[in-house]
Design a protein around this nucleic acid. Structure first.
Lengths: 341, 341
DNA sequence: CTGAAAGCGCTAACAA
DNA sequence: TTGTTAGCGCTTTCAG
């Protein structure tokens, strides 16, 4: 249809075809008000006939509205991150925003210039999915440098003065962690152990709070990496101990690792051992046995983060999207201790 | 450190500070050869002092090397897609490329203009992760419009004339599907059923070929969606039939769904039923029982796709990265039929 | 309501 | 080896 190597059609080509000035074309494509309907129609026809598409670089350079979000993150394959990203994408796409994604190396330290250099231009809108030190640091840099164009999800709001409501969207996993721990305690477990992901102090805090409130001394926290395999290894010692009857895990992947370790150690679930995860990933409900876990609406959070950003950018009260609060979903990996004794 | 609202520093600011022309600055930041070492050093100092960062829009507009890849896909939360994306990211980041990601709606039809409009500018480099009709269509549009800047992964090369080696990076899942089917047949299964994902005809083709070669009539294919839940539902009927002793699944998620359905139906694995997946996702090895599946190196494919693209863009022979060939990994969900009869 | 002029920050071509 | 001159395609002024 179009000649392969011909230069891209510009607003001038459209202008000539429609018999107007290039400026009028600009007005039409930006939905500026003061254009006669007839003129507008002519221009639109020309645009369609020529297959014109605006050049984003030129537009950005000329100081036009940017319509892009840069998402900063370290690990796009983690369930929580992937879902958050999906939520951002959904909302951003619906709003006609372009998405850039900038993946940081969790093992690296970045200078302020490094971080700012990830943006396509100065002051470009950014969302950082903060779940580790690297992303949290990036969040702080952006929050300080360009508070009007930065939003974060998930992170704890350490070291930022501004009201979190203005720039942070996150789930209250502390409270639900507390609730999950209490649920186990109430069923009669003498203690609840915690297997930690390399982040999310709030979950651990909720766990500790519930224990303290019940007058139970907190067992030593066991630390794991992000993967099932690392959880399996971290938990083998733990599941071997008969007095350990309940383990709260930092996320579902860790819970699966623990379940596998328990299986290998010959401990039955939930008879000998109760296991609870976080995330409610799609597999949780179809695992054998189905996993007791916490529903975390990351996708909703992603959407929320984008809408918050958009509101900061464009002002005006967009309808703020809502998302589900964290909720404990009791399935079949949890129960009273020594169920079948 | 930097004044919050002052205008961004440009190459002119750097030039003035270093006492050279803006063009010399441009040469330095682009590593152009003909600059005196002393001059280069001066400029670099000025850049550091001023915290200068190049403006990508301006660079793109002026016709400079683009250094960005747009990734087109429909579902960033699918394991295969997420891993491919990760591989692209890894390689692109190492090469200093910016990544844009454009998510298409699988339920929508896109015009050529729609697809081209996803690119930041005309002829911008693109990689499409093709795993369904929408992305395959996008792949064809880009392949035709800008063959020199387009690469695809995963897709079948339908409807494109050019030699696949020049633009397509994919895994030979047909052969390994054949192998997996033969493995089941050889153990004595009278038939092997296939639970299909909404794509990847090649896996189904391999399955059918193995069956044909063994003179076994192919059972009717059962179709599933992408999720564990949909697989569970699609498979409930299948697992209820005692004569069904082996099921090859389009990916690991489907396999998990089948395993759960088998559990619910009271059929033991692998005693009554053998199940094989595709992907070897991290959980597969730690599932109870560990899943027999096919290792698919999506991350390697992603890296390969990026390097192929880069080679097309910049010419010259970059070291082509290699990736693992698909391989059947026998774990504990497969065995001879009626193992414990 | 429409048009003309200027310039965003950068790179390409040329000249020195 | 360096500097000068034109634009890239668009949006902002400001005049008609």
């Amino acid at each position: 249809m179009s000649a392969p190597e011909s230069k891209a059609v510009s607003i001038f080509d459209v202008a000539k075809r429609a018999g107007v000035s290039h400026q009028t074309v600009s007005r039409v494509i930006n939905n500026a008000p003061m254009v006669a309907d007839a003129t507008r129609a002519k221009v639109k026809t020309a645009i369609a006939e020529l297959g014109y598409r605006p050049n984003r670089s030129a537009r950005a350079l000329a100081g036009g509205a940017v319509r892009s979000v840069t998402v900063l993150t370290t690990d796009t394959s983690l369930y929580g991150t992937a879902e958050t990203l999906r939520g951002i994408e959904d909302a951003a796409r619906a709003a006609g925003f372009t998405i850039l994604i900038s993946v940081l190396d969790p093992d690296q330290d970045y200078s302020e210039t490094d971080i700012l250099g990830r943006l396509p231009q100065d002051g470009a809108p950014a969302i950082v999915i903060a779940h580790d030190e690297t992303t949290t640091a990036a969040m702080r840099v952006l929050q300080r440098t360009q508070p009007g164009a930065t939003v974060a999800t998930g992170g704890e709001h350490l070291g930022v003065d501004q009201d979190p409501a203005d720039w942070l969207v996150s789930l209250d996993d502390r409270t639900v962690a507390e609730r999950a721990t209490r649920y186990l305690l109430d069923m009669g477990h003498a203690a609840v152990h915690y297997l930690a992901i390399p982040s999310k102090a709030s979950r651990q805090a909720g766990w500790a709070a519930a224990l303290a409130q019940a007058g139970v001394e907190a067992p030593e926290v066991v630390f794991s990496g992000w993967t099932v395999g690392s959880a399996y290894e971290a938990a083998t010692g733990l599941v071997a101990r008969p007095e350990v009857t309940a383990i709260l895990c930092g996320n579902d992947d860790l819970a699966f690792g623990v379940l596998y370790a328990a299986h290998r150690a010959g401990r039955s679930v939930p008879g000998d051992l109760s296991v609870i995860g976080f995330d409610d990933c799609p597999l949780a409900a179809y695992h054998v046995p189905p996993l007791t876990t916490v529903d975390l609406d990351f996708r909703g959070v992603g959407r929320g983060a984008f809408e918050l950003l958009r509101q900061k950018l464009e002002g005006g009260a967009h309808p703020r999207p809502t998302w589900r609060s964290p909720e404990l979903i009791v399935r079949e990996t949890s129960g009273p201790p020594h169920h079948r004794r």
